[in-house]
Simulated scan of single mutants.
Amino acid sequence: MNIGGIDIGEVKVIPELESGDEREVFAFYGLASFNAQCAEKALVNFAMGYKLLDESALSQEQWLELYDGFNSKTYGRLLGHVKKRVDLPSELVEHLSKSLQKRNWLAHDFFFDYAVHLADEDGRKEMIKELQSLILLFQIADKAVEKLSFKVWAEFGITEEWIQNEMVVQFEV
């Protein structure tokens, strides 16, 4: 898959609708929310890496303070920060802007807007279809920003392979 000239590879398979009951709606909502958070944290990592390119050597305390600052920003503020400092492909900017709008809608208005739909099976199935589309939207945003992040972090010797090795070491302990 490609967005804005960035090959993001394949996204994870989105589960199929099974029964259309309320529990399934909440499960898909959780998966959509999870993917929205992944996209948001990808922006944190990208902004952090890009900022480090401009900084001289930082102490561990300064590094953590900088990370905490980015991590406390909302998705919208992170996106605004990145858009001001990085020339991103317009297709990616549009996708990230849409994912921001949909993330906010998911967090604040989804259940309000679909309140009546919870009462019947067809309505719940419609909700699940919407959530499936959001999952895909957020996965694409996450993977695209992650690909850009790897380019930045490679400047510090941090590669996908290095991260995988570190994860193995962390989970072996």
Score class of each variant (00 low, 15 high):
K129A: 09
D109W: 11
K41A: 10
E130F: 07
E91T: 09
M127W: 06
G9H: 10
M127R: 13
S33W: 03
K143W: 02
N71D: 14
D7S: 10
E121R: 15
G157N: 05
N104W: 05
S133W: 07
V169F: 05
E40W: 10
H108G: 06
V13W: 02
Q37L: 14
N71T: 00
V145S: 01
A119G: 15
E160F: 03
A107R: 01
E55R: 15
L106M: 08
L137M: 13
M1N: 12
V152L: 02
D54K: 15
D122F: 15
V168F: 05
V93M: 07
F28P: 09
V173K: 14
E155L: 03
A47W: 00
V152T: 06
Y67D: 03
S56D: 08
K129G: 06
L100T: 00
Q139C: 04
L64E: 15
Q139L: 09
E126R: 15
Q37Y: 07
N104L: 13
H117D: 15
F138I: 13
D113N: 08
W63P: 01
F28S: 00
F156D: 06
L17K: 06
K51W: 04
L148G: 03
I163H: 09
K84T: 07
A144E: 06
Q164V: 05
L58I: 09
E91N: 14
E161I: 14
E146W: 03
S56T: 11
E61H: 00
L31H: 09
E10C: 01
A107L: 15
E55K: 15
F70D: 07
F34D: 14
K73Y: 12
I6W: 00
G76M: 00
K83P: 00
V11D: 00
E160V: 06
D7T: 13
K143T: 02
R124K: 12
L106K: 04
D120V: 07
D113M: 12
V173A: 11
T159P: 05
A42I: 04
Q132H: 04
W105Q: 11
E160L: 09
G9L: 02
S97G: 12
K12L: 05
A42G: 02
W162R: 14
V169K: 15
D120S: 12
G5S: 09
V82R: 01
E22D: 08
A36H: 02
D87V: 15
V145W: 01
